[in-house]
Amino acid sequence: MRKFGIDTDDLEIASIYQYYAKWIREGRLVVNSDWNKERRIKFTVQDPCQIIRKSYGDPVADDLRFVVKSIVGEENFIDMTPNKSNNFCCGGGGGTLQAGYHEQRREFGRIKHEQIVATDADYCITACHNCHAQVHDLSEFYEAKYHAVHLWTLMALSMGILGPNEREYLGEDLQEVNVFHPEQAEMM
């Protein structure tokens, strides 16, 4: 917007991660990680370049981690190295998902893939759609065990409000966990 001189006036431009964290801290959003106490399913998180390094920096990366730890349990979160503003791009940005050079895109993503594998996490939380599509594809292409999952899916799961038809990107281990209105599974 600065580039084009578009006047935002008093409009604040923010990442939803900041507000998720704020709403949890204020008690407006009641999440918890009890569902994962026994299961101990491991999660890592991808810092989207656009939101973290290019826009808001480490404070929002910390907000993102606060949200993730609140919903999966601190002991079940494993960070990649390097991370936050110094994180590696997943390879799904800059238009690469639509640019047609799939072989190069996957080679670019090999570093990200190896980073995720090194955490031994079962899930990589990808709150950005480009990252989600890329990490999902990397897992399939390199035949890895990790799933790519949206942040809001896990938030709703931890709140006990995630229905059976909102679990497209959850693995089998989470299909039956905390299901809201399980009878819907047959209905739709």
Partner: peptide
């Protein structure tokens, strides 16, 4: 078209 303009190069 392969570079994602992720800006890690600027960062380091």
């Amino acid at each position: 078209w392969h570079c994602t303009m992720c800006q890690r190069c600027i960062y380091v």
